Computed example of a mutant assay.
Amino acid sequence: MTMPSVHIRQAGSDDAAILAQLNRFVHGLHVGARPDVFQPSSDVEELIPIFSGFLAREGAIAFVAESEEGVPVGYVTAMIHHRPADALMHARSFVFIEHIAVDPTVARMGVGSALVESVRAVGVETGCTSLLTDVWDFNKKALAFFEGQGLGRMRHWLEQRL
Protein backbone atom coordinates (compact mmCIF):
# COMPACT_ATOMS: atom_id res chain seq x y z
CA MET A 1 0.00 0.00 0.00
CA THR A 2 1.14 3.52 -0.64
CA MET A 3 1.32 6.21 1.99
CA PRO A 4 -1.75 8.42 1.82
CA SER A 5 -1.03 12.09 1.46
CA VAL A 6 -1.41 13.42 4.99
CA HIS A 7 -0.63 16.66 6.69
CA ILE A 8 0.48 16.60 10.33
CA ARG A 9 -0.29 19.73 12.29
CA GLN A 10 0.01 20.69 15.91
CA ALA A 11 -3.32 20.50 17.70
CA GLY A 12 -4.64 23.45 19.65
CA SER A 13 -7.33 23.94 22.25
CA ASP A 14 -9.97 24.20 19.53
CA ASP A 15 -9.15 20.63 18.40
CA ALA A 16 -10.54 18.86 21.49
CA ALA A 17 -13.65 17.75 19.58
CA ILE A 18 -11.52 16.26 16.79
CA LEU A 19 -9.42 14.30 19.29
CA ALA A 20 -12.56 13.11 21.05
CA GLN A 21 -14.04 11.90 17.77
CA LEU A 22 -10.86 10.11 16.67
CA ASN A 23 -10.50 8.45 20.08
CA ARG A 24 -13.27 6.00 19.16
CA PHE A 25 -10.81 4.11 16.94
CA VAL A 26 -8.79 2.94 19.93
CA HIS A 27 -11.17 3.20 22.86
CA GLY A 28 -13.44 0.40 21.65
CA LEU A 29 -10.44 -1.95 21.57
CA HIS A 30 -9.64 -1.07 25.19
CA VAL A 31 -13.25 -1.50 26.32
CA GLY A 32 -13.49 -4.87 24.59
CA ALA A 33 -10.34 -6.18 26.22
CA ARG A 34 -10.64 -4.63 29.68
CA PRO A 35 -14.24 -3.65 30.49
CA ASP A 36 -13.23 -3.75 34.15
CA VAL A 37 -10.98 -0.73 33.57
CA PHE A 38 -12.46 1.17 30.63
CA GLN A 39 -15.91 2.74 30.52
CA PRO A 40 -18.14 1.90 27.54
CA SER A 41 -17.66 4.36 24.71
CA SER A 42 -18.92 7.76 25.69
CA ASP A 43 -20.64 10.36 23.61
CA VAL A 44 -18.08 12.61 21.93
CA GLU A 45 -19.51 15.59 23.84
CA GLU A 46 -18.54 13.91 27.13
CA LEU A 47 -14.94 13.46 25.95
CA ILE A 48 -14.36 17.03 24.79
CA PRO A 49 -13.71 18.38 28.32
CA ILE A 50 -11.21 15.57 28.93
CA PHE A 51 -9.20 16.47 25.83
CA SER A 52 -9.60 20.22 26.48
CA GLY A 53 -8.20 19.71 29.96
CA PHE A 54 -5.27 17.73 28.60
CA LEU A 55 -4.45 20.34 25.95
CA ALA A 56 -4.45 23.08 28.61
CA ARG A 57 -1.83 21.34 30.76
CA GLU A 58 1.71 22.65 30.85
CA GLY A 59 3.95 20.38 28.78
CA ALA A 60 1.10 18.89 26.76
CA ILE A 61 1.56 18.44 23.03
CA ALA A 62 -0.75 16.98 20.43
CA PHE A 63 -0.80 16.51 16.68
CA VAL A 64 -3.58 15.80 14.22
CA ALA A 65 -3.07 13.95 10.92
CA GLU A 66 -5.34 15.15 8.12
CA SER A 67 -5.95 13.68 4.68
CA GLU A 68 -5.29 15.85 1.66
CA GLU A 69 -9.02 16.63 1.74
CA GLY A 70 -8.60 18.02 5.27
CA VAL A 71 -10.33 15.10 7.00
CA PRO A 72 -8.77 14.18 10.39
CA VAL A 73 -7.47 10.58 10.25
CA GLY A 74 -5.37 10.31 13.39
CA TYR A 75 -3.97 12.01 16.44
CA VAL A 76 -1.32 11.68 19.10
CA THR A 77 -1.11 13.30 22.53
CA ALA A 78 2.03 13.45 24.61
CA MET A 79 3.43 15.13 27.69
CA ILE A 80 6.89 16.57 28.22
CA HIS A 81 8.34 15.75 31.63
CA HIS A 82 11.35 17.35 33.31
CA ARG A 83 12.35 15.46 36.45
CA PRO A 84 14.99 16.92 38.76
CA ALA A 85 17.77 14.81 40.19
CA ASP A 86 17.41 13.34 43.64
CA ALA A 87 19.41 10.97 45.82
CA LEU A 88 18.31 7.99 43.72
CA MET A 89 18.04 9.22 40.15
CA HIS A 90 19.72 11.58 37.71
CA ALA A 91 17.84 14.57 36.32
CA ARG A 92 15.82 13.48 33.34
CA SER A 93 13.71 14.99 30.58
CA PHE A 94 11.49 12.83 28.43
CA VAL A 95 8.38 12.97 26.29
CA PHE A 96 5.66 10.43 27.01
CA ILE A 97 3.05 9.46 24.41
CA GLU A 98 -0.31 9.34 26.20
CA HIS A 99 -2.69 8.45 23.33
CA ILE A 100 -2.43 7.62 19.66
CA ALA A 101 -5.26 6.66 17.32
CA VAL A 102 -5.38 6.19 13.57
CA ASP A 103 -8.44 5.65 11.41
CA PRO A 104 -8.37 1.95 10.42
CA THR A 105 -8.92 2.90 6.77
CA VAL A 106 -5.39 4.35 6.71
CA ALA A 107 -3.75 1.95 9.17
CA ARG A 108 -0.32 0.61 8.20
CA MET A 109 0.20 3.45 5.75
CA GLY A 110 2.61 5.56 7.79
CA VAL A 111 0.15 7.89 9.53
CA GLY A 112 1.03 6.60 13.01
CA SER A 113 4.74 6.79 12.18
CA ALA A 114 4.38 10.41 11.07
CA LEU A 115 2.53 11.25 14.29
CA VAL A 116 5.22 9.61 16.44
CA GLU A 117 7.94 11.40 14.49
CA SER A 118 6.22 14.72 15.21
CA VAL A 119 6.31 13.97 18.94
CA ARG A 120 9.92 12.82 18.70
CA ALA A 121 10.91 16.10 17.00
CA VAL A 122 9.30 18.21 19.74
CA GLY A 123 11.04 16.06 22.34
CA VAL A 124 14.42 16.74 20.75
CA GLU A 125 13.64 20.47 20.42
CA THR A 126 12.76 20.70 24.12
CA GLY A 127 15.84 18.85 25.34
CA CYS A 128 14.26 15.49 26.07
CA THR A 129 16.62 12.53 26.04
CA SER A 130 14.03 9.81 25.53
CA LEU A 131 10.62 8.99 24.12
CA LEU A 132 8.42 6.76 26.29
CA THR A 133 4.96 5.25 26.16
CA ASP A 134 3.06 2.37 27.66
CA VAL A 135 0.98 -0.32 25.99
CA TRP A 136 -1.65 -2.59 27.45
CA ASP A 137 -0.55 -6.22 27.32
CA PHE A 138 -3.57 -7.24 25.22
CA ASN A 139 -2.69 -4.73 22.50
CA LYS A 140 -0.06 -6.72 20.60
CA LYS A 141 -0.47 -4.55 17.48
CA ALA A 142 0.38 -1.40 19.44
CA LEU A 143 3.38 -3.10 21.02
CA ALA A 144 4.65 -4.19 17.60
CA PHE A 145 4.01 -0.70 16.19
CA PHE A 146 6.01 1.06 18.91
CA GLU A 147 8.83 -1.47 18.72
CA GLY A 148 8.88 -0.79 14.97
CA GLN A 149 9.29 2.90 15.81
CA GLY A 150 12.48 2.07 17.71
CA LEU A 151 11.09 1.96 21.25
CA GLY A 152 12.31 -0.91 23.40
CA ARG A 153 10.88 -2.51 26.49
CA MET A 154 12.24 -1.01 29.69
CA ARG A 155 9.76 -1.82 32.44
CA HIS A 156 6.98 -4.29 33.16
CA TRP A 157 3.78 -3.67 35.11
CA LEU A 158 2.33 -6.74 36.76
CA GLU A 159 -1.27 -7.12 37.86
CA GLN A 160 -3.27 -9.48 40.03
CA ARG A 161 -7.00 -8.93 39.96
CA LEU A 162 -8.57 -9.18 43.39
Rank of each mutant, 00 (worst) to 15 (best):
P4M: 00
P4H: 00
I8T: 04
R9D: 02
S13I: 12
D15E: 02
D15T: 00
A17Q: 11
A17F: 08
L19A: 01
L19R: 01
L19S: 00
A20P: 08
F25Y: 11
V26I: 14
H27I: 05
H30E: 08
R34P: 04
D36V: 09
V37S: 06
S41H: 10
V44M: 11
E45I: 01
E45V: 03
E45K: 04
E46N: 10
E46S: 13
I48L: 06
P49S: 13
I50A: 10
I50G: 08
G53T: 09
R57D: 04
A62V: 05
F63L: 06
F63C: 07
F63S: 06
V64P: 09
A65G: 09
E69R: 13
E69D: 11
E69F: 11
Y75C: 02
M79C: 05
H81N: 14
H82M: 08
H82N: 12
A85N: 06
R92T: 10
F94A: 14
I97Q: 03
I100W: 05
A101H: 03
A101S: 07
P104E: 02
A107Q: 12
R108V: 00
M109F: 04
S113R: 15
V116K: 01
R120M: 09
A121W: 06
S130F: 06
V135D: 01
V135P: 01
W136T: 05
K141R: 14
K141Q: 14
K141Y: 13
A142G: 11
A144C: 00
A144T: 05
A144P: 01
A144E: 08
G148S: 01
G150L: 03
G150Y: 04
G152K: 12
R153K: 14
M154C: 13
R155N: 14
L158R: 09
L162Q: 06
L162T: 08
